Computed example of a mutant assay.
Amino acid sequence: MNKPRLGYLGTGLMGGPMVRNLLKAGYEVTVWNRTASKCDEAVVAGARRATSPAELARHSDAVMACLTNASAVEAVLFGPDGVSGVTGPALFVDFSSMDPEQTRLFGERLRAANGMGWVDAPVSGGTPAATAGALTIMAGGTEADFAMAEPLMAPLAQRVTHMGPSGTGQMTKLVNQVISGCTMAVVAEAVQFAKAKGVDATRLTDALAGGFADSKPFQLLAPRMAAENFENPLGTVAMMLKDLDTVAEVGEGSAALPMTETARALMRTACDQGHAQDDISTIVLTLKGLA
């Protein structure tokens, strides 16, 4: 049985390695990115380059996307030469992160436009997991749409969980970002505290491995923060701040979020200092400056 043809919109830090894993799994993939040069590596790996989201959709049975925010998703779907103007693809799988209600409305709008199903499938694990095909994916959508999407996501993930109807994937991602964002801020605080008091912070991950303080973010970020080596970003400060801003908007009036607010303030200060597009680990420099 032939594999469905896939289209992939957004080949940046996360999307690029995800496309390469789809190609390795034997899928025919057509790619598009607003900055066309960001598709070059995918094309070298075997992907076909499209000149617009609409052209991509015409060559696809299912379309995937990993984009910066809701505005970017709306543009590729409903803007000029958008996916919604093409009849043919059966499904849209969105790995982007956005407001759960916005996701639900986009899904309804797309289905009304051309009949495509929708699965919101935000991811966790950063660029290392995207490269290894070991992402954690939390998905929202109808049972039928998820059943269609699940095998397509298999080359990308170590775990895919169907959380419920449209929007529940995005809501679960916000829960993930509360935990992740606060942990990142605490790891930065601990590393900077250690350095300020003369502890060799480069040894912390070995010293604390397996204890209550250990975690995947700690193991990934503490060495980068200790060495102040921010090459090959795991994810940007701006992306995490965007998600924590969404948490604050969704939780307003219904949930107390004091830890999230503290982490959010730290990341906003880091962005104001020029680190918005830098690796998330650079928040340790902001704490260093505050000290």
Score class of each variant (00 low, 15 high):
255 A>F: 15
104 R>W: 11
235 G>S: 15
282 T>E: 07
143 E>D: 13
34 R>T: 05
148 M>E: 12
214 D>E: 05
89 P>I: 09
173 K>P: 09
37 S>I: 13
177 Q>N: 15
174 L>H: 08
150 E>K: 08
83 V>P: 09
289 G>W: 10
164 G>I: 01
215 S>N: 04
124 S>N: 09
185 A>E: 12
178 V>D: 08
10 G>E: 01
247 V>F: 07
18 M>N: 01
220 L>K: 00
120 D>M: 01
182 C>F: 04
252 E>N: 12
239 M>E: 00
166 S>P: 08
80 P>F: 02
167 G>K: 04
87 T>K: 09
258 P>C: 14
40 D>G: 06
243 D>L: 05
23 L>M: 10
82 G>V: 01
156 L>D: 02
74 E>G: 01
199 V>H: 01
198 G>V: 12
37 S>T: 10
86 V>F: 07
89 P>S: 13
67 L>C: 09
281 S>Y: 05
39 C>L: 15
63 V>D: 06
1 M>F: 03
6 L>Q: 08
158 Q>F: 03
102 Q>V: 04
93 V>K: 07
82 G>H: 02
142 T>S: 14
157 A>K: 03
170 Q>F: 00
131 T>M: 10
270 A>E: 15
209 A>Y: 04
285 L>M: 06
87 T>M: 07
290 L>H: 09
19 V>E: 12
219 Q>L: 01
173 K>R: 00
96 S>D: 00
193 F>T: 02
223 P>V: 06
39 C>M: 15
168 T>M: 04
71 S>F: 10
151 P>R: 07
222 A>E: 08
185 A>M: 09
269 T>R: 15
232 N>T: 11
263 A>R: 11
